[in-house]
């Protein structure tokens, strides 16, 4: 019994390797670079009419100077840019704490025929940078000044 089993082991290994390879191919081979969590403004605009009124995520940078917040109606508007194209976004409700000018964002919603993106969900996309504030800056307070400064 011992002998027959020790002869079997290479087959067991070969079988395992084959199963692993097939599984990996099935799981990840089908995915390619097109698996994206969000579209850039340029990609969304390139879709033309196919991009209207379908649930989609749009990601990019909050274009500096475009943020408008109305603290009475809780309406937030801004533009998302990828450096090439801009898309106007309209959202309601308070944004996440880290939302500010120049920050990365991903918005969920639909792109209307009026070329305004109606956001039903707003996510902040953080960069891979971590730094203490420069002298004179205070952490976190930029958000407050943004909201106060651009209110009504």
């Amino acid at each position: 019994m011992t002998e027959s089993k020790s002869k079997r082991r290479p087959w067991v290994i070969a079988g395992v390797v084959a199963v692993v390879a097939v599984f990996g191919w099935l799981l990840y081979g089908g995915l390619d670079k097109n698996v994206v969590f969000f579209l850039t403004p340029q990609e969304l605009l390139a879709k033309g009419t196919a991009g209207y009124d379908v649930p989609v995520r749009l990601g990019g940078q909050v274009k500096p100077g475009t943020v408008k917040w109305d603290d009475k109606t809780l309406r937030l508007t801004f533009e998302v840019t990828d450096g090439k194209s801009d898309v106007a976004v309209q959202s309601s409700g308070a944004p996440p704490q880290m939302f500010r000018d120049g920050m990365g964002v991903v918005v969920e919603g639909r792109f209307g025929r009026d070329h305004v993106f109606n956001s039903t969900g707003l996510m902040v996309k953080h960069s891979n940078e971590y730094h203490p504030p420069k002298p004179g800056e205070k952490p976190q307070e930029m958000y407050k000044t943004l909201i106060k400064g651009s209110g009504s």
Partner: peptide, 11 residues
């Protein structure tokens, strides 16, 4: 560690 300029103490 000082607070991060974006996320404060969340860092």
């Amino acid at each position: 560690s000082p607070p991060d300029r974006d996320m404060g103490d969340l860092e």
